[in-house]
């Protein structure tokens, strides 16, 4: 997906998955996706697989799950909480990547923080509009799931029995 910085990046899908299935299954699913992309697309890479699994599959999944729970407890509807969870999880994933790169490649003059600012400039800024887009799409899918798949949402534990979602 293109972004306002004139470069491109991806949504991660961890938000929707974690809301529906919980964070643990998504750690596994995300890791498999990253392995496939590394092997079939030379995207991400085998030597960096662990680092990518951490930023996307682990941090992404748990941030999404946590944000969803917190925002729900604050009384927001499922689609609104889903938007927050997906957008924040997507953004935090890329901030984690920037942090990892800054640890691996500290600037010779300004050290870790100097490097961190540069990597954040690349990833976080590019990611902001994409995170919002992922949040909106997650929200949309949740609206439809709640409309047409109420009973399944109930059995997944997203919706409690008799609970109003809107």
């Amino acid at each position: 997906m293109p972004s306002v910085t004139g470069s491109s990046s991806h949504p991660t899908g961890m938000g929707l998955g974690s809301i529906l299935f919980g964070p643990w299954p998504m750690v596994l699913v995300g890791s498999i996706v990253l392995l496939f992309q590394a092997l079939l697309l030379a995207h991400g890479g085998i030597t960096t697989w662990g680092a990518n699994c951490f930023s996307m599959a682990i941090v992404g999944a748990f941030v999404a799950f946590g944000v969803f729970k917190i925002v729900r407890r604050l009384g927001a509807s499922i689609p609104v909480a889903g938007f927050c969870a997906a957008a924040i999880s997507d953004l935090v994933t890329y901030c984690t990547t920037a942090t990892q790169l800054a640890i691996a490649y500290p600037d010779k003059v300004s050290g870790f923080w100097g490097s961190w600012v540069k990597f954040m400039g690349v990833f976080a800024v590019t990611q902001i509009p994409l995170a919002i887009a992922e949040g909106l799409l997650t929200s949309l899918v949740l609206v439809y799931l709640l409309k047409y798949q109420r009973s399944e949402m109930g059995s997944l534990g997203v919706l409690k029995t008799g609970e109003q979602w809107a």
């Binding site: 004139g6 470069s7 491109s8 990046s9 990547t97 690349v122 590019t126």
Partner: peptide, 14 residues
């Protein structure tokens, strides 16, 4: 803009 991947941009930063 060339809309190349942000990962490539990170490579340039490295």
């Amino acid at each position: 803009g060339d809309f190349a991947g942000a990962d490539g941009k990170a490579g340039e930063v490295i």
